[in-house]
Structures are given as C-alpha cells and as structure tokens.
Design a binder for these strands. Sequence first.
DNA 1: CTAACCGCTTGCACTTTACAAGCGGTATGG
DNA 2: CCATACCGCTTGTAAAGTGCAAGCGGTTAG
Lengths: 161, 161
Amino acid sequence: MEIRSGCPINLSVEVLGDRWSLVVLRDMMFGNFRTYRELHGNSLEGIATNILAARLRHLEAQGFISAAADPSHKQRTIYSLTEKAIALVPVMVALGSWGVRYQPAEPTFAARSIALERGGAAMAEAFMAELRHLHLGAPAPARSVLAELNAAYETAVAERG
Amino acid sequence: MEIRSGCPINLSVEVLGDRWSLVVLRDMMFGNFRTYRELHGNSLEGIATNILAARLRHLEAQGFISAAADPSHKQRTIYSLTEKAIALVPVMVALGSWGVRYQPAEPTFAARSIALERGGAAMAEAFMAELRHLHLGAPAPARSVLAELNAAYETAVAERG
DNA sequence: CTAACCGCTTGCACTTTACAAGCGGTATGG
DNA sequence: CCATACCGCTTGTAAAGTGCAAGCGGTTAG
C-alpha cells in the first residue's frame, strides 16, 4: 500500500486500519494466543483461514510479530509480539475504553478494558512488561496482570449468570 | 455491516476500521475543517469525492458528526463533531504517539501529536472542551489549544527549513 | 445574465474481504 | 507400519469496499 501522507495518525491507519489487524493483535495480547490454530479456533469474530494467513503475513512484514518453529513440534509455528506491537497497549486501552462507553454491547465483554483503564498507566506498563516475557510462547506466570484481567472478565460473566 | 462480536475493541474496529473514517475525524479535530469543500481541498491524503461523501454519511449515521445547513449560505453544509467523536481524542493521541515512535515519517508532521502527548491528560481535556464549543462551525478563539498545537507544527516546519 | 461555487452522484476498474473446500506434510495411537 | 487426526495454510469464487475521472442540479456573486 502506498504512503498517502506522513501524518502519524495516517501512517497508523495505513498499517492497522483494516478489519482484522487490530483484532488479531488483541487476541495475542489479551488471549495469549500464539499459534495459527489458537488464533483461528478461539477467535470471537470467526476469522476466515485465508484472511488470518494474510494478516499474519502482513503483521510479520510490518514488524508487529515474529514467527518461529516450535522446537518440540516442527510443523507448529509460534508467533510472538514484538515491541512495536506491545507499544500498542495504550492504543488498545484507549480504543477499548471508548468502545465500552460509546458502542452499545453486552457489558461482560467490557471487563478487561475497564480493568486496564482503572489500573491506569502503571497497570498498562506492568502488562507490557509481562508481554515482553512471553516471547516464543513461554508460559504465562500463574500470578500475572493477564490473569487478573481474565479473572475480572470471568467475574463479570458469572455475575450476569 | 454485521456485528462480529461484542468486544469493545472489535466494535470500535467495526465502526472506525477503514481507510478513511479516522482520517476525516482527525481533519475535523486538528484542522477544524467543517465543510465538504474544506475536507476535500485540505486533505493531506487526497480523498476522492465519492469516498468523502460516503464517509460523511457513515459518520453521521453512526453519530460521530452532525450536519446542519449554514444559515448564511443555504447550499453549504456545516459538519460538527459530536461528543462521541470528541471522546476519541485520547485514541488519536495514543495512535499518533505510537505512529511517531514506530512508523517512519518526516518528523515535522509529528509536532501536533507530540505536543498533545507532552501536555498529558490535562491538555487533552482542555482540547476536548474546546472542541465542544466549536459546534455549528463557531470560529475558533485566537488563543486556544488548537492554536498552540498548530504553532508547534509551524515551529517544527520552520526549524526544518 | 453569466460564471464560479456548492455538495455531491455516476460509471467503471481495481483491490480487499468473505465463505467453503481441500491439500501436502507431520505427529500419534494401535 | 498404517490409519487417523492435526498442522498451517492455499485455491476458487463471489461480494463488498476503494480509487479515479467526469459531470450534474441548484446557489450565490459580480
């Protein structure tokens, strides 16, 4: 895609302004999905296989993710977030918080965004630090910001029945 | 467009995740463009007339902007930002700051984003308050956050020659 | 009266997205 | 060692979105 202008907002839109790039990065951030199968099978939105493959190529070419073969399972590819993608956490928080407030939705899904918003910059930083250590599909620590966010989500679901 | 999931990030992507919506809102926020002619003629990225018309319809239908006839010029339409769009200022700041850092660009264009980022939440709030008073194309005050941002931009341009 | 201006619309080509089916290779259980 | 399931995709086809150029009906200015 050609560059339309050097405005940073435009540049961001050019590289992330499609229907799937941000959603895939969201799943890797908040869902800790690391393989094609996980990203396809757990996708809330039901991404098509060819679209997922194209987005993974795009995100890799643009430096948002890196791909490596699983040493214990040769045909499995493990995708990892790069710093460029991890730095999008504040964007995700801002977008999620806006969405919670202005886009009508079932409230349960809002829990992670609300929790991260309430935690402020410090919680966002802690979450980003955690994401940096999940490279190459390392297992998430039992006690983690991600676990906290997911617990907030589970609680919200349970409260609704 | 059908709803794919209730996740707030997905909902935001569904309504803003195209090549032009955020760019048009950026021009209304930071450029104070209020008419079709201004949005078309001053567009850094050169938006096509049919696309601009379609985006304006979309943004109006989704409640981001409102349209009103100019009382002193019947064929002119004045578009105004609603609170739903003004609330996107933190998203714009986060996206712009990320773009400045991670997307290569001529540094001059980055000035507005950097200025707003440095100003922090307080400056963003002041800017949002200002946007609320620009309804129906009211003239911007001479001394304003927007003027400050534009001055920062002019300074950056001058410094580069 | 004429010319410029106003916000678009139309037609057409091209690109992106979407759904469904299937493919070549790899691990696994018996 | 062979069937079966799993792995990350690719292919075909259709629909939707984007991009470019031209032009249109009404309004305003001189």
